[in-house]
């Protein structure tokens, strides 16, 4: 089993899906001969030809709309938006069409599409290239929103997204593209989009995160262990619809919860999880639910981005406060 980066895992799974299913079509800006700005689609056009791996005009609305049209006729489109900061012209298509085509036609047409988009800060990118705005997508009924935190899960979750009969937005943390390595078996086995992953078991506090921030979250759990605090770490992975039961079971055990996300705090998905715990987990709680999130600011340019991304220290402090709460 080779050790690969997360972007390699994405490339492996796209090639695997294209090889296994002639209906899979990959397209977006610069995904052809250039292999994508992050090289996620490197070599695919050479291998599968320009009809199945195509460079679109520079038009994000079009990319999402093409997905809907192709998917409705039985193809499996995998569109790429170059950065999440440019996904906003697709919102109309995602809200008004992709997520409701099955419902609108009462099951006659469906929309098995995947829209991939790199997200997040931490790679010293220019403005609009560090967005982490998943909450505006998780509010959309009928959609799935998925984000991996390791090459292994990138492989299994993206394959699941491509197999899924409904539209999926698949977010890829740019910070992990080359910053995360793992052993990936290119075995064509998908992971479930219905469950969250417990990355580390613990007794005292549950730390919930998704995407790149799990790196800091796992490091925080390690630091907490040195202080004698046993932290459980959950990778939510599928953000919409999310696995409430794994969260509730964990907090029933630990009694404390810290939600960590890179996205801005207000109206973030952390608020939804906090509400879930207030509604269904209140009697297990020994301390207030805490959120460690990006600030309610514009994501800063690279000189300050490390101050924006939740740090190990902030996570450790929040967990410590939860454990000391009386």
């Amino acid at each position: 089993m080779p050790e690969v980066t997360l972007v390699d895992a994405i490339n492996l799974v796209l090639a695997r899906a294209m090889q296994d299913d002639p209906n899979v079509i990959v397209f977006g800006e610069d995904v052809g001969i250039n292999g994508g700005v992050f090289r996620a689609t490197a070599g695919l056009q050479q291998r599968f030809g320009p009809e199945r791996v195509l460079d679109t005009p520079l038009a994000e609305l079009l990319i999402s709309g093409l997905c809907v049209g192709m998917a409705s006729q039985g193809l499996k489109p995998v569109g790429e938006i170059q950065f999440m900061g440019f996904i906003y012209p697709c919102i109309d298509q995602l809200v008004n069409h992709a997520s409701r085509l099955r419902h609108r036609t009462q099951g006659r047409l469906s929309c098995p599409m995947v829209l991939r988009a790199p997200c997040g800060a931490g790679i010293r990118a220019p403005e609009h290239h560090s967005e982490h705005t998943e909450a505006m997508l998780t509010h959309i009924p009928g959609l799935r929103v998925v984000i991996p935190s390791s090459p292994e899960r990138a492989y299994g979750l993206l394959l699941a997204a491509i197999h899924d009969p409904d539209p999926v937005v698949f977010l890829e943390p740019t910070r992990l593209y080359r910053g995360a390595r793992g052993l990936v078996d290119d075995n064509g086995e998908a992971l479930s989009l219905d469950v969250a992953f417990v990355l580390r078991e613990g007794r005292d506090v549950t730390l919930i995160g998704w995407g790149a921030i799990l790196k800091e979250t796992l490091a925080a759990a390690e630091a907490l262990a040195d202080e004698g605090i046993s932290a459980e770490v959950i990778d939510l992975a599928t953000l919409k619809p999310y696995d409430a039961e794994t969260i509730l079971a964990s907090v029933a055990k630990t009694g404390r919860c810290v939600i960590v996300h890179e996205a801005a705090r207000t109206g973030g998905l952390g608020a939804e999880i906090a509400a879930l715990l207030a509604e269904r987990g209140l009697t297990s709680l020994l301390a207030p639910v805490a959120r460690v999130a990006g600030y309610d600011t514009v994501i800063p340019l690279p000189r300050l981005e490390q101050s924006y991304i939740p740090s190990i220290n902030r996570i450790v402090s929040a967990a410590r406060r939860a454990c000391r709460f009386t």
């Binding site: 093409l66 409705s72 006729q73 008004n96 609108r104 036609t105 006659r108």
Partner: peptide, 30 residues
Amino acid sequence: NLSSGPPHDFPFCIPVGSQAPHAAGVAYAL
């Protein structure tokens, strides 16, 4: 919406013009 029309036809689009990119996608599939 349980239309008796051809099974591959789209439902009529309420937002103005957003069916145009679908048409391009459908045509690409064809």
